[in-house]
Amino acid sequence: MDTSRTLLALAVMGLVTFGLRALPFVAAQWLARHRAVAVLGRFLPLAIMALLVLHSGVGAARGHTPWPELVGIALVAALQWWGRNALVSILTGTAVYVLLRNYEAFQGTF
């Protein structure tokens, strides 16, 4: 990674993120006047997050059957739904996914 280019990229990401977080504070009156914003606020985050799970899962499954992704996502969702501990959900799901993906490599060593 080129240092100055990466720093520029990080600055852009930081600005976009800050802009999103600051918007309600600078445009509070405009946002409050539009009821549609409140409904969008309840609809969009869930729809886009579900879409991102699918998109990143499809991307990761390129080149093999999608079983590790399906098992991993289902496991994380179940753990988070009942356990509500994000760290446990993420680390357990990732560990199981890594095991599944590296299964053949592990078989060779044992």
């Binding site: 799970v53 988070q80 799901g93």
Partner: peptide
């Protein structure tokens, strides 16, 4: 992906 799933 796990983080996205947790947020979902």
């Amino acid at each position: 992906i796990a983080l996205f799933t947790v947020l979902t």
